[in-house]
Design a protein around this nucleic acid. Structure first.
Lengths: 328, 328
DNA sequence: CTGAAAGCGCTTACAG
DNA sequence: CTGAAAGCGCTTACAG
């Protein structure tokens, strides 16, 4: 059942049907009523493809992220999807695994579909979105990065001051009298580097030597557990462990509890992300809220405005906030 | 840059360009080479919209779920997305919140885009996918349900034997000498009901009276915490709490730990889903693996085959598995 | 092996 | 207020 069938049945031209469908132009009330009746009677569904053929848009945006199973990304993707849905767009989900080739494959696919915009979630895209084809693919459509930035004229950014976020955790621990802190640094993304820098800087500002205080580890629960064991076994003085992710902190906490080390009395622990992991821990983890929902909302707003009005890529920064729990 | 531009530059007809683009029909090696050179030189990107205009497909599937922030749904959506991506489809993500009207809105939107298939993740869709418009929307395209079933000729199902899953947990506890079990039932979906039935049945099979042993609660950590407090304060004998979700079990565990009740010595706890929550708990939660990844993969396989070959809706059932932890 | 032409289902100037 | 016609960028019989 297409627009021709409707037109025939209503005794009008397809142009008129199109007008009532889109509330564009002028249609006499009588004609409109007649067409609407036919439309409803046939459960007519307009073809977004045919419409897209002329408008060059399917009202779709692509969200590229690392892995939707990571709670922080899931939250971000959730808000982005809901907000775009409210605005009449569908969202294509892409789990790139942080892999450059995979990201390229997704970008090629969504370019063919002529998406109206692209959201890149995670600072890993700072690193992998390089090279001629990437730039070409990302250059022809509005782009926004959550927790990242790209040197493209059309790319917007919503940044989180992650260095400051870790700084907050450090200052919090120092203020409570902790003197021998460690930092567990995950992966190697820009964001992870910024957090590490925040740790180092906060220690230096307090007149402490950060040398040997940063441990590079993976980003799993087990990595956190192993790192804590490593610290304990090293015999080095330690009264606080600052972690770059809640999941790592949960692992640390697990090791400490199993070793019957009182938390926070002997060793304090802090996480990052304000995820459910933090609430789940017993005692509840002190963590840093990196404002995932706010970041996601801002991404949608920036992208929407650059999809509709164009304009150069703007950038906003969000400040994280310490959320005290019972591990500090 | 469209197919006409390419044809002109290569000195051939658009039909020939289309042939080399799709490796269809026959093209002389020389012509093919010439066209391919022009294609590459111009970074030609075919329009999926124009292609869809004739094929009636954008090679897209829609995944409707309740809320991607729930880890179990995130895992399912992840696998579905990855598997479809491998097969050359893009995935549209829809967070319905389990709301019928929202689901309808999404279904209307993806019907206009003529998606090739629809995946419904969660047994809530058993309940909300009723009514004329729903049936019409779901009737014209291959549909598969993860953990659910629909009385439609074209709908496939991948079911999880959730009743059996809870039964496994109960039998496990009974085998370890527990005699006073409670079941914490979440929400009211078909799946939650089946789990409750599994609990009741397993108790009866063991010759126990299930009366008063099932508590209906919400599905949050706090609900689990409150339910455990309620049980403790009631003074009723209790040496095991079976939960319908890991998150609830985590809440129960939290309350028990805070009350200094030895787990599992005095009260055992089991969860459901084999989520990260279970691993995070200390002690690690005994849980039931409801095979989310396997379910997701089967969904993709069923949907793919019914998208390509049509055929009636088939149904498969997956058996859950007990994963012993340290809380039982 | 290759090309001319029709057709997919809409929207949008342009006439009237 | 309404309709005829062109055009969006492809694929696909059909001829040759």
């Amino acid at each position: 059942m297409n627009i021709y069938d409707i037109a025939r049945e209503a005794g009008v031209s397809i142009a008129t049907v199109s007008r009532v469908l889109n509330n564009k132009g002028t249609v006499s009330p009588a004609t409109r009523a007649r067409v609407e009746r036919v439309l409803a009677a046939n459960h007519y569904t307009p073809s977004a493809i045919a419409r897209g053929m002329v408008s060059k848009s399917l009202r779709t945006v692509a969200v590229l992220t690392v892995d939707i199973r990571v709670p922080h990304y899931a939250r971000t993707a959730y808000t982005i999807e809901r907000e775009f849905s409210r605005r009449g767009y569908e969202v294509i989900l892409c789990n790139t695994g942080g892999d450059r080739e995979e990201a390229l494959r997704y970008l090629r696919a969504v370019a063919r579909k002529q998406v109206d915009g692209i959201v890149l979630v995670g600072s890993v895209f700072n690193t992998i979105c390089r090279g001629a084809e990437m730039t070409a693919l990302l250059g022809k459509v509005p782009v926004v990065l959550a927790n990242g930035a790209l040197p493209l004229p059309n790319a917007c950014s919503v940044l989180v001051d992650d260095g400051r976020g870790i700084g907050l955790a450090v200052e919090h621990l120092l203020a409570r009298g902790r003197r021998a802190l460690f930092y567990l640094k995950d992966k190697s993304t820009d964001s992870a580097d910024r957090k590490r820098d925040g740790f180092v800087q906060a220690l230096e500002q307090a007149g402490q030597d950060p040398a040997g205080r940063v441990l590079e580890i993976g980003d799993t629960l087990e990595d956190g557990m192993a790192a804590a064991r490593h610290i304990l076994e090293s015999g080095q003085p330690c009264d606080g462990i600052v972690c770059g992710e809640d999941l790592i902190a949960a692992g640390v906490l697990k090791t400490l509890l199993r070793a019957h080390i009182p938390v926070p009395e002997r060793i304090a622990v802090t996480g990052y992300n304000r995820s459910d992991y933090a609430r789940l821990c017993e005692p509840v983890l002190t963590t840093v809220d990196n404002k995932g929902d706010q970041v996601a909302l801002l991404c949608v707003q920036l992208l929407e405005s650059s999809m509709e009005q164009g304009g150069p890529g703007t950038s906003v920064t969000v400040q994280p906030e310490l959320v005290p729990g019972r591990t500090s």
